[in-house]
């Protein structure tokens, strides 16, 4: 079963360096973050081998959040070969996230 990647500042740059990545910036106490959690898990399965689905806990990894100007959670940033190409703020449907990823593949 494919799983999302839980990334920290130690491996973040390497994680998103190649291919398409969707990064979910979240915190454990955030209601809308929790709402999309099962969606993110399904996306990790659906895009297994095609795109990386990454979670960053902004409570612990504030450096990454600051670097990308994340001031609201959940913020979802899409990367292609390490370059930030798109950003979504707030909860959205699985189809909306999948459409963004498919647009980059």
């Amino acid at each position: 079963m494919a799983k999302y990647i839980e990334s920290t500042s130690a491996d973040f740059d390497a994680t998103i360096a190649e291919g398409v990545s969707m990064v979910d910036f979240l915190a454990p106490w955030c209601g809308p973050c929790r709402m999309i959690a099962p969606v993110v898990e399904e996306l990790a399965e659906d895009f297994d081998g095609k795109a990386k689905i990454v979670k960053v806990n902004t409570d612990e990894e504030q450096d990454i959040a600051v670097k990308y100007g994340v001031r609201s959670i959940p913020t979802i940033i899409f990367f292609k070969d390490g370059v930030q190409v798109d950003t979504m703020v707030g909860a959205a449907s699985k189809d909306a996230f999948a459409a963004k990823i498919n647009g980059l593949l």
């Binding site: 915190a27 106490w29 955030c30 209601g31 809308p32 973050c33 409570d59 959040a65 100007g69 994340v70 001031r71 609201s72 959670i73 959940p74 913020t75 950003t87 703020v89 707030g90």
Partner: peptide, 16 residues
């Protein structure tokens, strides 16, 4: 600036 400092969720974004 919504999501870049403008927010409607204090529990989500207060800690920033």
């Amino acid at each position: 600036l919504f999501g870049k400092g403008v927010s409607t969720c204090a529990t989500c974004d207060g800690f920033f």
